[in-house]
Design a protein around this nucleic acid. Structure first.
Lengths: 219, 219
DNA sequence: GCGCGTCTGGGACAGTTGTCCCACTTCGGG
DNA sequence: CCCGAAGTGGGACAACTGTCCCAGACGCGC
């Protein structure tokens, strides 16, 4: 079977991601990657120049994946409104519920597939230690913050609220909180992190106030 | 020069820690460790059975180090009271300042020596992936939480406050926050994390109330 | 139909790794 | 003083790594 180099690149990157998630970055050798992809060793250097290059691609792949997950999450968050929302629940309470639910969903995904987020953090650390991957980690996290900012904006709109702190600032805080929760969930999968969410979510929502909608301005 | 096996174990563990901090866990090969310690390769297997065994020892070493750092931090936190404290500043404000200062000091240490905390996280992740190191990560974080709980108790006492949430719960949250801030500082060393602290510290202090001291009970 | 460039297969290479071994040195107690 | 045990030195080993090479097979455009 003959496949284009571009197709091969994608398959190899996907295989590399699977290996990283399952066995960790350290185990993601070129041989392990091509085996996962069901290819021959030589095919690798036909598609990529080096191991670092695949890892860079993997990070890109992951960020893209998060983007899709985010989009899905946003759609889902917008779904349950049918049961009546903006009028029934107050803005702040709704925003808190949304924030809470989103963070909770993320945490559930970590519990469901711990290797995934651990692999991501391992990738980040590898990038930080590898000169050839300079800037990859920073870029990865900039993307994360951008995604979170989108979610924040969407959530506020949904709840009829307005953030009183810069979105980038809030996004940075949430990304940090997510990473912290991730490590906590990885190290101690049985721990109940709900109280931690209860502690942190209000701090976030405290940075929002009811938005003045067009309907309410006339008063 | 002839040294005892015990001495050699300590020196090797210390050398291993230096390598992990400077070059990462992946670079901490047996040869790199003995080179760092200025020993011969054979000396290693005379002191340790395997690489995993040193890593386990390194984690223990690190936790001990954190314990000392913590003790020093507690002493320092107790120092500035000479300028008048409990009476001058309100309990909640003081507790907030203490919390803020402690987290800030930790963050400063990450900026001062990024490799150290990255190395610690790498060690944790390695432990999570290595069957021979099962339980090491959980133990490491249990110790962390214990240390933080001590700091919390001391801080509350200093400020004449009382925590209204279980100490273990608060400690878990703070450890998670610290990890999140660590990753943020590692990935983007130039970022200003002060606003994030401003956001999170009040959430913690909100779980404290003025303690009823003996002097105030009579009323 | 066919030639040429694209892609594949298998192997080879040097470097590095963890582990082990055996001859040697050095010390401490008799 | 001297012998046995504790500690040291240097090297060897197989396994594994990233990288590279070259002969061959395939498919597409002419």
């Amino acid at each position: 079977m003959r496949v284009s180099a571009e197709q091969r690149r994608r398959e190899l990157a996907a295989a590399a991601l699977r290996v990283v998630v399952r066995d960790g970055v350290a185990a993601a050798t070129i041989r392990a990657i091509v085996a996962e992809a069901g290819m021959k060793l030589a095919s690798f250097h036909y598609a990529y120049r080096s191991r670092d290059e695949v890892l860079r691609e993997v990070v890109r792949l992951v960020v893209e994946g998060e983007r899709e997950t985010t989009a899905a999450a946003l759609a889902e968050a917008a779904a349950p409104p049918a049961s009546g929302r903006a009028d029934e629940a107050g803005g702040p309470e709704l925003l808190a519920a949304l924030t809470r639910r989103t963070l909770g969903a993320y945490l559930a995904s970590v519990h469901a597939d711990p290797g995934r987020e651990q692999g991501m953090l391992e990738l980040t650390f590898t990038a930080l230690r590898t000169p050839e991957l300079e800037g990859v980690a920073a870029e990865q996290y900039a993307q994360y913050r951008g995604l979170v900012a989108e979610i924040l904006a969407a959530g506020a709109e949904l709840a009829g609220m307005r953030w009183t702190a810069p979105l980038e600032e809030l996004a940075r805080a949430i990304v940090a909180i997510s990473d912290g929760l991730t490590v906590a969930a990885l190290v101690d999968p049985d721990a109940d992190l709900e109280p931690v969410l209860d502690l942190l979510v209000p701090a976030l929502v405290a940075r929002a106030e009811p938005a003045l909608t067009a309907e309410r301005i006339p008063g």
